[in-house]
Each structure stands twice: as C-alpha cells, then as structure tokens.
C-alpha cells in the first residue's frame, strides 16, 4: 500500500472550487427542473389533450433515454443545427430537462394523492380551478412530494458529475485534472466521493428538518 493523501490535502482549495461549481450547476438545474416539473405536472393532469400528451411525451422520452446522451445531444449535437450552447448552459439545461421529467411525475403523483373531495369542495364554494390548485390542492400535495423530491435533488447533485463530459470543471472534472498531474487516482477519486457525500449529507439534514416541521403542522 502506498497511499498518500497529502496530495489531496494540498489540493483541497481547488476541490472546493469544484464543489462550488457542482453546487451551482445543481442549484440552477433543480430550480429550472422544478419549473419544468410543475408545468409538466399541471399539463399532465390537465384535460387539454395537447398539453396532456405533450407532457406525457416529455416524460416518456426523458425517462427512457440516458442523461448522458441527452446532454451530448445538447452540447455536441445541436451545433450541427447551428445552435451552439455554452458548456455551462448546456450542462444546466440538460440536467434541468432531465430532472424536470422526474419532478413532473413526482408532482403529478402528489397532486393526485390529494383527496378528490378537496377539489370538489373548493369548486363548490365558487373557487376557480386555479384558486383551488393554489390554495387548497397545492399545499396538501407538497406534503406528498417532499420525500421523493429530496431523493430527486440528491440524484441531480450526483448526476451533475456528467457535466464534466461537456467540459464543465465541476468537482469530478477537477478531480480528474488533479489526477493528470499527480497520478493519485485512488486518493483523489475517494476524496471526490467524500465531497459529494458531504454535500448530499448537508442537504439531507436540511431536508429532514423541513420534513419534520411539515409533519408537525
């Protein structure tokens, strides 16, 4: 055994920069993914056939293809059609489209888990569909959505490592670059893994607190 973690310690500042980029990608991908997911879910439960089948198609295609292929289409494929996205845009957008499909399903299931009588009661009082969704159904659906959403957020943070393949220097790619110069694969990859674990753990703790507070209400 000739493990030497001093190499890793020396590179901690650079690895932290990689973490920061990873967090940024994940944050914006999730933010945008939530927008796609909420819109997708509302379309999925809509009685409008076009919206409904559009959202179904979106979820079907995205869930049925690898996220890496989706990202490559955006970054390496689109330029052939004259659309050249900066790597950061392609990375965030690709991850957002991907996670948005899963979030669509999570939110749709959450909304449908709310008792049907709630919508009927709201409508019978004269509320519009929108008012009922926002004031009555939405707040109750949130409770059902949080656990699977936490899961999805964690998946997205881990999937963000794929952004390294479209030349974004996030945590994983930072690690690879360190390996090019130090040849310390084992030490660096395990360090990278630990950093992912730490980021996700912080997030899990926050999510757990949130869930507990929601359960109390």
């Amino acid at each position: 055994m000739n493990l030497d973690y001093s190499v890793v310690f020396a590179k901690i500042p650079i690895l932290l920069e990689g973490c920061w980029v990873t967090l940024q990608i994940s944050f914006f991908a999730l933010l945008l993914g939530m927008v796609f997911g909420i819109a997708g879910a509302l379309c999925r439960i809509s009685s409008n056939k076009v919206l409904n089948s559009g959202a179904f198609f979106y979820v079907w295609v995205i869930r049925g293809t690898p996220v890496m292929v989706q990202l490559f289409i955006l970054y390496f494929g689109l330029p052939q059609l004259g659309i050249r996205l900066p790597s950061m845009v392609a990375g965030v957008l690709g991850l957002a489209i991907n996670t948005g499909a899963y979030i669509t399903e999570i939110i749709r299931a959450g909304i449908q888990a709310v008792d049907r009588g709630q919508m009927e009661a709201a409508l019978s009082l004269g509320m519009s569909y929108r008012q009922a969704m926002r004031r009555i159904i939405g707040p109750q659906a949130v409770k059902f959505c949080i656990p699977p959403l936490v899961n999805q957020f964690i998946m997205t943070l881990k999937n963000s490592s794929i952004a390294s393949l479209v030349t974004i220097t996030e945590l994983f790619r930072t690690g690879e670059q360190i390996i090019y110069t130090t040849f310390r694969s084992f030490e660096v990859y395990t360090a990278v893994a630990v950093f992912y674990l730490i980021m996700n753990s912080v997030f899990m703790v926050i999510a757990d607190k949130l869930e507990r507070r929601m359960a109390r209400q």
Partner: peptide, 12 residues
Amino acid sequence: GMVFQRFNLFPH
C-alpha cells in the same frame, strides 16, 4: 352551497 357525505374540510 354543497355539503358532502365525507365533509371535505380543508385539513391544512
């Protein structure tokens, strides 16, 4: 006004 068998009060 409508009153339902299962009340359908808003639980939150």
